[in-house]
Every structure is written in C-alpha cells, then in structure tokens.
Design a protein around this nucleic acid. Structure first.
Lengths: 239, 239
DNA sequence: CGCGGTGTTGAGACCTGTCAAGACGTGTGG
DNA sequence: CCACACGTCTTGACAGGTCTCAACACCGCG
C-alpha cells in the first residue's frame, strides 16, 4: 500500500528492512477523500501528516480575486504535508484533484520514529528539500519561461516523477487535470492553456485526450522546455 | 557574530544555552566573498554549509538564453544552503549580491550535532521548510499577481524578514539590489521594474533612493500586495 | 431533457517586453 | 586633472504575448 512511497525513498537512499517496518508502523489509518476537496486548510493546527497512497493532489493558495494558484502537484508515494510535522500548520491548502486515498501518520508517532532512526529524519528532510527544489523550478518557469515552454516543462516533470513510482507506460501517463487546473499550475488562464496545448499538439510533441498524456517527441519537448532533471535529485546517495 | 542567526531561530522556537553552544561550535571558519560572485555552483558536491553572517545573497538559476531567475533572497542569519546537508549538491547557484561574510559548517560536524540534539535537527528542518514556504509565495506572486502587486509583496516580505534580525529602522531598510536584480526576482525586465517602481513612488507608498527603501504607507502596500505574513511562520512553537 | 462543467474559438484590450538612446555617477588610466 | 569606459537609471515608440469577454459545442449526469 505504501510501496510507491518506499520506491520514492529508495530511489534517493537505502532504507533498511527495520526502517521499512518503522515507516509502515507510522501509518495508523487510511482515509479516502473525493475529488476537489480541501483536505488540509491553510492555518489549521495539525497533529498528523498525510501520505498520498493513490490519486492526484495539489498545494493551492486562494487569492483575493477568487483565483487560485497551485504551487505543486503530488502523486502516489508523496507525503503531502510532512513539513507540517515541524511547521505545525501550513501556509497553503492541500486539495484533491482526483478521488484520493491517504495514509495518516500521527506526529507523536513520527517524532518517536525519527528520534529512533535519525537516518530516517534525514531522509524525510531530504524529501521536503526536494519539494523546495520543485518550487524553485516552478519559480523559474513562471518567472522566465514562455507559456509554451512552461507547459512543456511541467509535462516533463510529471513524466519523471510518475516514472519513479511506476505510474507511466512508456512516455504516457494518466493526466486528470482540467485545462482550468493546468492553468492554475502554470499561471495561465484556461483559454490560453487551450491554445498552448494546441501548439504542442500541432508540433507533434504530445497528445492529450481522454485524461491521458502521450509524449510523442520527448527530446523535442525537453529541449523546448529547457528541462534538466537535476532538480528532482533522482539518485541514490547516503543522506 | 551569529547573533542574527540565533534571533531567527529563537523567533520560531526556544534554543537552550547548551544548544546555542553546539550551534556556535558548528561554525569552524569565516569566509568573506566580494559582491556578484557565485559562491556555490549548481551541481557541485558539498561537504559544508554556509551561514550568512553579513550581506545579501540570492539563490539563482541561469537560463539558456542568458537570463537569470532569483528564487529567494537571503540576509544575515540565514543558512544559505543547509539543505545541501541532505541533498549533497544544489539545483541552483548561491550568488552574492553585496560583499558578504559567511560562517562555514562542515557537514560531519552538523551531522554529529543534530544527532546529539534531535530538537535542533527539527529546528533546522523547520528553517528549510520556511524557505519552501517562501518559494511557494513567490510562485503565487509570479503566477497570479501583477507586476505592481508582485513588487509590493516583495518589499513587504523583505521588511518582515529583516525585522526579525534587527536590520530595519522603522519601516526603512538598506536595499542593495539594482533594478536589473530586482527584475530577476520578480520575473520582469529592468525597464518594466523601473516603470513599476515609479508607480509605487507616484502612489506615495515607498521611496527607493541611495540603495535604501522607505515604506511610506505600509498598510496600503500590504493591501496592494495582498500580503499575509503567515507564510513566514513568525511565531515561537515547540518544534 | 436540461444543466453544469469542460473544451474551443474569435475579437479586441492591455500588460509587459524589446529595442534604442541618452543622462548620470563612478572609477580608472593617462 | 581630464578623458573615457562602464554600469545603472530613465524615457520613448512599438511589438507581441497573454488576458478578457463572449459565444458555442460537447458530454456526462441527474
């Protein structure tokens, strides 16, 4: 059930059998949430963190004018709010995009586990640092890349991240976002998302249909996006 | 010398005298770097982290077309690359904006200290999580706010962060960025930065002169920016 | 069968970028 | 001490990318 999570961790560092047991023991409960729900609300005091077992989830912030910005997408295997273990409340919402299943880890239990296994503390610290790295790359996208390159970049990122947890088939993956939501990731209106998608299709780089993305020309897409996967830290090192 | 750093930590959690000694012991050396230098280069293997003692520094990423995006600013008291302790290399550069002084912490020493004081591990984890929160807020700025609101927001953020370490005088602070560099933070060209600054001046919200910012109408600026300091976690809680 | 959400298209407006030129201050070398 | 180069700030004219508003097609679902 948390296999995707272990895959994600083990891509970055070795996890012993004992540590694996400790991780499994942290999850006390499973919770299913429908699509389009705010699971964690900004500011709320938190005593538990949620491990995403299945579904797509986003970190979102609402704006005064009714708009919304998604600052990161999350997939199976991601601890959506491990940072709440230290922050105690979040500065953003956690909102489901699809129906999702979460494992619940009580902070008391997390704390005991991480004090017993300082190495695991470093591993989870690494994971939140990778989240920050993803944020930085989005900052670059939003600040400096054109709508077209920005969108190409996002499709490249999602491919790499889903690969880690075995959710790709070749260069294809399920893609449940509406054009509206895609725009909320990219800082674009849904109208412009629509036109930009058409450009990617016309260039025969991707197809998007039936909630599924197929990347036809990955090198071309990566080059268009100026995509360099270094920021995802897809490498096993002792942490 | 690391007083600003301790102020920053103690704003978020209590640090015992023993922990303070351990922190001081982590710093083995002081290093002075001139302005406009890349201190840490993307990808470089790191065995130490740098605590900024004095000066202004930015996390930067270079683009194919010669452009540059700054994804975060850092001031005295900030550990510029504590995340390298777990990541082992960075996905971005650390570049000085002004001449800067750093304290050096060897990772071996950091590791021993944090294993001895698990509470300090959580405190530093908290700090990197706050960096991530700042990244998210910049994502919102770049994705959804106008040039004017984005700039107003940055001036509000800098005021709050400098206040923590005692580098403000009322609502004024030294501000060493060129308009070019300010544009690299905000995803704007220097030409547009110039025009946007003029708007802020015309509205009598700020003055910027002689490398110094004075905020004349803080409530107005915050409202224009839709600024909410929650994301800076300016509160003392046990971590 | 009607309704709401989603995707698509068009026309026009507006924000921001591009290119270019000049003013100003500062540091450097002759 | 002057001449000059250089970086920074400023301004203007224009281009272009993205947004806004609007309308319509399509589809799943109650």
């Amino acid at each position: 059930m948390i296999d995707a999570h272990l895959k994600k961790l083990r891509l970055r560092d070795d996890i012993s059998a004992e540590e694996e047991r400790a991780i499994r023991d942290m999850i006390s409960e499973v919770r299913d949430i429908p699509a389009d729900r705010v699971v964690i609300r900004r500011g709320q005091e938190l005593r538990e963190s949620l491990l995403l077992i299945d579904g797509w989830v986003g970190r979102t912030k609402d704006l005064r004018d009714g708009g919304r910005q998604i600052s990161e997408l999350q997939f199976a295997g991601d601890f959506t709010d491990m940072h709440a273990f230290t922050l105690k409340r979040l500065d953003h919402n956690i909102a489901t995009i699809t129906p999702s299943r979460f494992g619940v880890a009580q902070h008391d239990k997390v704390r005991a586990t991480l004090e017993r296994f300082p190495h695991l503390a470093r591993v989870y610290w690494t994971m939140t640092n990778i989240d920050a790295a993803i944020h930085r790359e989005w900052t670059v996208s939003l600040g400096r890349r054109s709508a077209l390159a920005r969108m190409a970049h996002l499709f490249c990122e999602i491919l790499e991240r889903l690969k880690v947890v075995g959710l790709t088939q070749g260069n294809e993956y399920d893609f449940p976002l509406t054009q509206q939501e895609l725009g909320e990731c990219l800082g674009l209106t849904s109208v412009h998302v629509n036109r930009t998608l058409q450009q990617l299709r016309k260039r025969r780089m991707i197809t998007v249909e039936e909630r599924r993305v197929a990347i036809l020309d990955l090198p071309g897409l990566q080059s268009l996006a100026d995509f360099n996967p270094d920021y995802l830290y897809l490498e096993n090192k002792p942490r």
